[in-house]
C-alpha cells in the first residue's frame, strides 16, 4: 500500500486508480524520431529524383521496350519454365520426401542418393549437362538392364533446349523441395499419424487428409522462397539458348547497346512477378493457419485464459 500512495496521500485511492490506468498511457513525443523520418525521406526523394533524371538510365527506352514482343515472349518463357519446373519439382519432391522417410531401405536410399547428387552440384552445371547429354549418350533406349532393348531414340531429338531446361530445373528443384517437405512432415506431431492409423486410415489417406495439411504451415513459406529463386534461376537457361526474359533483353541490347535500360526492363518485370507471388503466398499462409486460434490475436497466456474463462461459464 505504501508504494501506491507515492503521488500524494491527499489525492485518495480513486484518483490513484485513474492515474495508473494503463488505458491512458501514450508514448511521449520524440523529436529525434521525427528528424530521422525527415532525413530518410529526403535521401529517398533525392535518390528517386536522380534516378528519374539521369539520362543514362534511359527511361524512354525502358518505356519503349517494356511491352516489346521479344520481351513479352521472354517473359512467357520465364513464367512457363517456372510453373512447369516448379510443379514437377514439388510433385517429385513430395515423392522423394515420403520415400526418404519410409522404413523401406531401398526407397530411402534411392531418395537420399538423388537428393545428395542434385543438391551437391551447381544448377548451371546440371543444365549444361542435360543440354549436352548426347555427347555422353548418343542414344537413349528402353530395355532390360544388361538385356535386350525395346526402343531407342537419338538423344539430340529427345533433348531440346526446352526439355533440357525443364529437366535440369525440375530435378534440381525436386531435391530442395524434398528436404523442405520432409521438414514440414516431421514438424507435425507424431500423435497425429498415430491417431489416423488407429482410426484405420491407410498411410496414403493419413498423409493426404491429416499430415500434409498440417505440414503445409511450415512448407509454404520456404516454398515461396523457392518459387522466387526459381523465377530468377530460369535466367540461367540463357546459357543453353533458351529465350527467357533475361536472354530476350540481352538479345535486344546486343543489337542496340542500351544495356542498362534493357536490364531495367528485366528487373522491373522480375520485381513485378515476385510482388504478385508475395501476395499469393500470404493468402495461402492464411488458409493453412486456420484453426490456429484467432489468427489476429497473439497466442499468449491472456488469450488462453480468456478461452478457459469462457469455457467455465
Amino acid at each position: 500500500m505504501s508504494t501506491l500512495s507515492a503521488p500524494g496521500k491527499e489525492e485518495g485511492a480513486r484518483m490513484d486508480a485513474d492515474l495508473y490506468d494503463v488505458a491512458r498511457a501514450h508514448h511521449p513525443f520524440r523529436p529525434g524520431r521525427l528528424l530521422l523520418w525527415v532525413v530518410v525521406l529526403a535521401v529517398a526523394a533525392n535518390f528517386a529524383y536522380i534516378v528519374a533524371n539521369n539520362p543514362n538510365f534511359g527511361w524512354p527506352v525502358v518505356a519503349a521496350y517494356f511491352f516489346d514482343p521479344t520481351v513479352i515472349h521472354g517473359l512467357y518463357v520465364t513464367l512457363g519454365l517456372t510453373v512447369v519446373a516448379m510443379a514437377i519439382g514439388i510433385a517429385l519432391g513430395l515423392l522423394l520426401a515420403i520415400a526418404r522417410m519410409s522404413s523401406d531401405r531401398l526407397a530411402s536410399s534411392v531418395s537420399s542418393l538423388f537428393i545428395w547428387f542434385f543438391r551437391g552440384t551447381p544448377l548451371l552445371v546440371q543444365l549444361i549437362f542435360w543440354y549436352n547429354l548426347s555427347t555422353l549418350f548418343p542414344e537413349i533406349s528402353i530395355g532390360i538392364p544388361f538385356g535386350p532393348t525395346f526402343a531407342s531414340w537419338n538423344t539430340n531429338d529427345l533433348i531440346s533446349p526446352v526439355t533440357a531446361a525443364i529437366v535440369g530445373l525440375a530435378l534440381n528443384e525436386a531435391a530442395y523441395m524434398a528436404e523442405i517437405i520432409r521438414g514440414g512432415l516431421l514438424s507435425v506431431d507424431k500423435g497425429q499419424a498415430e491417431t489416423a492409423e488407429a482410426f484405420g486410415m491407410t498411410r496414403a489417406r493419413a498423409l493426404r487428409r491429416i499430415i500434409i495439411p498440417q505440414a503445409m504451415r511450415s512448407i509454404v513459406p520456404p516454398t515461396g522462397n523457392q518459387l522466387i529463386s526459381m523465377i530468377k534461376a530460369t535466367s540461367l537457361v540463357s546459357v543453353i539458348a533458351m529465350a527467357d526474359l533475361l536472354y530476350s533483353v540481352q538479345s535486344i541490347y546486343n543489337r542496340t547497346f542500351e544495356v542498362m535500360p534493357m536490364l531495367l526492363v528485366a528487373v522491373l518485370w522480375y520485381l513485378f512477378i515476385t510482388s504478385i507471388l508475395n501476395v499469393g503466398q500470404s493468402a495461402i499462409e492464411r488458409h493453412y493457419n486456420r484453426g490456429e486460434r484467432d489468427a489476429a490475436v497473439r497466442k499468449d497466456d491472456a488469450a488462453e485464459k480468456a478461452v478457459q474463462q469462457e469455457d467455465a461459464r
Binding site: 506431431d189 500423435g191 497425429q192 498415430e194 491417431t195 488407429a198 482410426f199 491429416i210 495439411p213 498440417q214 493453412y288 486456420r290 484453426g291 490456429e292
Partner: peptide
C-alpha cells in the same frame, strides 16, 4: 481409441 493428449486434428473443425 481415445488418447491421453486428445489428438484431435487441429486443422479441422
Amino acid at each position: 481409441m481415445v488418447f491421453q493428449q486428445f489428438n484431435l486434428y487441429p486443422h479441422m473443425t
